[in-house]
Simulated scan of single mutants.
Amino acid sequence: MKIQNSVRAALLTTALISGTVVPAFAADGGAAVSMADQAVATVQKATGTGDVAPGGTAGSVIAADRGLVTVTTPASAEGRVSVAASDGSAVTMALPAVVDAAGTTSAAGTTVYPNAAAHTDLATQATVDGGARALVTLKNADAPTTQRFDLGLPEGATLIADGAGGYDIVTSAGGAGAIARGHIDAPWAKDANGKAVPTSYKLDGHTLVQAIETGPDTAYPVVADPHYTWGIISGTVYFNKSETKVIALGGSVVSWLPHPAAEAGGRTLAGVAGYAVATDQCIKFKVNPGLAPLSPGMALAGSGVYGGSAGDGYCR
Results as ranks from 00 to 15, higher is better:
Glu78Lys: 12
Ser252Lys: 15
Gly182Ser: 13
Tyr201Phe: 15
Asp312Ala: 03
Gly67Asp: 03
Gln281Trp: 00
Leu122Gln: 00
Val21Asp: 00
Gly130Lys: 02
Gly152Trp: 03
Val69Glu: 03
Gly302His: 11
Ala101Asn: 05
Ser18Asn: 15
Thr207Gln: 15
Tyr238Gln: 04
Ser309Met: 12
Ala173Asp: 01
Pro144Leu: 06
Val253Glu: 02
Pro258Gly: 11
Ala39Arg: 00
Pro54Lys: 07
Gly290Gln: 08
Gly59Glu: 14
Thr14Tyr: 06
Ala310Lys: 10
Thr137Ile: 14
Pro74Phe: 00
Val98Asn: 09
Pro296Thr: 12
Phe239Val: 04
His183Phe: 10
Leu12Met: 15
Lys2Asp: 07
Cys282Asp: 01
Lys45Gly: 09
Val170Glu: 03
Lys195Gly: 09
Gly290Asn: 09
Val222Trp: 00
Phe25Trp: 10
Val40Thr: 11
Leu153Lys: 04
Met298Ala: 15
Leu138Phe: 04
Gly174Met: 05
Ser86Thr: 11
Thr73Arg: 09
Arg148Phe: 10
Ala143Arg: 01
Val197Met: 11
Ile3Ala: 06
Arg148Tyr: 10
Ser106Tyr: 07
Val305Leu: 14
Arg181Cys: 04
Thr268Glu: 05
Thr229Ser: 14
Ile212Val: 14
Asp280Pro: 04
Ala32Arg: 07
Glu213Cys: 05
Ala85Gly: 05
Val112Cys: 03
Leu122Glu: 02
Ala63Thr: 12
Val33Ile: 15
Thr127Gly: 07
Gly271Cys: 03
Lys190Val: 10
Gly235Gln: 07
